[in-house]
Computed example of a mutant assay.
Amino acid sequence: MPTELTEARWTHIALPTGDLDKAIGFYTSLTPLVAVERFKDADGESVWLSNAHQVETPFVLVLVSFSKDKGEKLGLLAPFAHIGIEVPKREDVDAIAAKARELDCLHWEPRQMPNPVGYICALKDPDGNVIEISHDQRVFDSVRALWGRQPS
Rank of each mutant, 00 (worst) to 15 (best):
W147Y: 13
T31I: 05
S50F: 00
A81C: 11
T3F: 11
D92S: 08
S142T: 15
V130H: 02
W10C: 07
L103Y: 05
P88E: 08
A52S: 10
Q54A: 12
A42E: 11
L74T: 11
D21G: 10
A14W: 05
D21R: 12
L15H: 05
D41I: 04
F59H: 10
A35S: 13
G44P: 06
R38W: 08
I24C: 03
T11H: 12
Q150V: 15
T31Y: 07
D127V: 08
V117H: 12
P58T: 00
D104R: 15
T17S: 05
P2Y: 14
R90E: 12
D19C: 05
R111A: 14
E86I: 06
R149W: 04
C105I: 02
K73C: 07
F140I: 14
P2E: 14
E72M: 06
L106F: 13
D41A: 01
F59T: 07
F39G: 01
L146I: 07
A98R: 12
L33W: 02
N115Y: 10
H12S: 12
V143R: 05
L61G: 02
I120Q: 10
D104F: 09
D141I: 06
L106G: 10
D41T: 09
F26W: 01
T6G: 01
E102K: 13
P126L: 06
G75E: 04
D92P: 01
D94F: 10
I24K: 03
W108T: 14
Q112G: 09
T28E: 06
I96Q: 06
F59V: 13
G128Q: 07
V130T: 14
S134K: 09
G84E: 03
V143Y: 11
F26N: 05
E91R: 05
G18C: 10
G44R: 04
C105M: 02
K22A: 09
D125R: 09
D127H: 12
D69F: 01
E109T: 13
T11G: 05
F140W: 12
G84H: 02
V36S: 05
A35D: 05
P88L: 00
D136E: 15
G128K: 07
D136M: 11
G71H: 09
D41R: 00
K99W: 06
V36Y: 03
V34E: 06
L5A: 13
V36W: 00
R9F: 11
L106C: 09
I13W: 04
A14L: 15
S142W: 03
K124Y: 05
W108P: 02
F59N: 03
L76E: 15
K99N: 11
H53Q: 11
